[in-house]
């Protein structure tokens, strides 16, 4: 089995040390481990600073205390001490190999017909396939943009402001993709792909099928999305708050966050597209209140809710006025 390992956040000197250690262990492991430099897309990442990315196993070596029961969906965390020792590294490889074998034997999902999918999903799927240094041209009606994988990050190059581009791509619905070598210099607006996907998804019409995907379950966000990197509005802040506090059905989320079910579905899908971890649980029956298990927290005495809410609303109005 061929496996890749990358480092993230180390000094060049430390990277050299690790490289040497990997070389020393090379004939002592079952899998073939190759060191592929700094980055977060590899089977195994040794991380000096917290990072997210396309990897199956991470060894956090940040020097922060980590609690034992971490909630992370896709990444398996292995404990080790820094500085690494050869035996420690062999143990990491051994455990990572078993994780990676288990993962690769899962059945691959059937590739869907891309033309039937919403524009946002088409773009996300096509962009996921490009490799470092490659570029993808995206054409929709009379609009064009490029996606390029640069230094592990997918970037969009466009000649339109990101919001305009997002609405035109969504409106066009059917997108044409082509792998290209050259990007015209007029495409100068550079944005992370995730920001574009987010903006597109929040304008995407919601189908019955989309609702089905999220219905009859309760959903919980396991982290906040990186606010500021995505276009947000206050219903999203309320959804984030609610869904990070408790697992909630789309109906209840819409009610409590004072927005539509369609918006909840758009928002959850957008979170999924930018890699915010979500945990979904089957709910016993449709429409049952899922608010019963409240968070047990030490709270200051709550004043009458109505007054408190009206104070918050006036504060929000005041802040908006001050800005306009």
């Amino acid at each position: 089995m061929n496996l890749s390992v990358k480092t993230f956040g180390f000094t060049p000197y430390e990277v050299e040390l690790i490289k040497e250690q990997i070389r020393v262990t090379s004939n002592k492991t079952t899998g073939q481990w190759s060191f592929e430099g700094e980055g977060t897309d590899a089977d195994l990442v040794l991380a000096r600073v917290p990072c997210q990315g396309q990897h199956k196993v991470q060894v956090p070596l940040y020097g922060f205390p980590l609690p034992a029961d971490r909630r992370q969906q896709d990444v398996v965390y292995l404990k080790s001490e820094w500085p690494l020792r050869i035996f420690g590294l062999l143990e990491i490889f051994r455990q990572a190999e078993s994780v990676c074998t288990a993962r690769t034997s899962l059945p691959a999902s059937k590739p869907a017909e891309s033309a039937e999918l919403p524009a946002t999903i088409q773009l996300a799927q096509q962009a996921a396939r490009i490799k470092d240094g490659q570029s993808l041209s995206v054409e929709a009606a009379d609009n064009r943009c490029y996606v390029r994988l640069f230094d592990g990050q997918r970037l969009v190059l466009s000649n339109l402001p990101i919001e305009t581009l997002a609405s035109r791509l969504v409106a066009a619905n059917s997108l044409r993709f082509e792998s290209v070598k050259h990007i015209d210099s007029q495409y100068r607006t550079v944005t992370p792909l995730k920001s574009l996907l987010w903006s597109m998804q929040l304008q995407q019409p919601v189908s019955a099928n989309d609702i089905d995907n999220w219905n009859n379950k309760t959903h919980r966000l396991l982290a906040w999305p990186a606010l500021g990197q995505y276009k947000t509005s206050s219903f999203m802040f309320r959804l984030c708050t609610l869904l990070t506090k408790q697992s909630t059905s789309i109906q209840n989320a819409a009610r409590l966050a004072n927005t539509s079910e369609d918006n909840v579905v758009r928002f959850l899908t957008a979170c999924q597209l930018v890699g915010t971890p979500i945990s979904s649980t089957e709910s016993p029956a449709r429409g049952l209140p899922d608010l019963a298990p409240k968070m047990t927290v030490n709270r200051p005495v709550t004043p009458p809710a109505e007054q408190q809410l009206s104070l918050l609303q006036s504060l929000r109005n005041k802040l908006r006025k001050a800005l306009s």
Partner: peptide, 24 residues
């Protein structure tokens, strides 16, 4: 930057509104 701080407060407000609602 006032605008950026306002965004921070808006998030806090959303947080407090939801807290108030779910503990009502």
């Amino acid at each position: 930057d006032r605008g950026q701080l306002v965004m921070t407060l808006e998030i806090l407000i959303a947080n407090l509104e939801i807290e108030t609602l779910i503990h009502e």
